[in-house]
Amino acid sequence: MNQTVDAAVHEHVHRDDVGAKIGMWLFLFTELILFGGMFLVYAVYRFTYRDFFALASKELDVFIGLINTLVLLTSSLTMAMSITALRRGSKNLSLTFIFLTIFFALLFLVNKYFEWSAKFHHGLFPGSNELLTLPRGEIVYFGLYYVMTGLHALHVIIGLIILVFMFFYVKSGKVNQDYYIMLENSGLYWHLVDIIWIFLFPLFYLIH
């Protein structure tokens, strides 16, 4: 970091895009470690209850998981493209991409809703009598499944809300070709949500 940059920063102390991005990344690390703690718990229990985990994971529908993976990957694509569009000056294209991202986020949540309600229908939910009859390893598996995908879904919802704000900010011109850091930071958040799912998918749906 050289002196000229610092001097420039001081002249516009209320507008430091690089600083904003550093702050966003640092925040993403806390999210990463937050999920990391749960991945650590997962790792320990998978180590302890290997066979039970493999057995319990058969209850999950790989197809739904796969669809949701593709939905999130595609939403990441549209998110990234919306920034490029904005920076190239095509505001309407950018808005379209943001809208698509919001659409995919909703699709993910709807999918998740059906998946969870199917589980609940089978009596597999925390504290249910059905669950308590299972071996301990499977109880823990479902405990982790609900908490980890639940917290991930919560992050999708937060991301969704942010994206709705971004849609209106871009529309009103508050976020524009020159000042796009807010959209970029929202994008960073959205991609992180995607990355978490990239790991959740094989760990819960694909283990055998």
């Binding site: 718990v41 925390p126 071996p135 390893g137 109880i139 908490v147």
Partner: peptide, 17 residues
């Protein structure tokens, strides 16, 4: 709150983790 089994040894959890 929800009785999710994560750490509680009665539900298969591990107090050490």
């Amino acid at each position: 709150w929800f009785g999710v089994g994560i750490f509680d040894p009665a539900l298969g959890g591990d107090p050490i983790v």
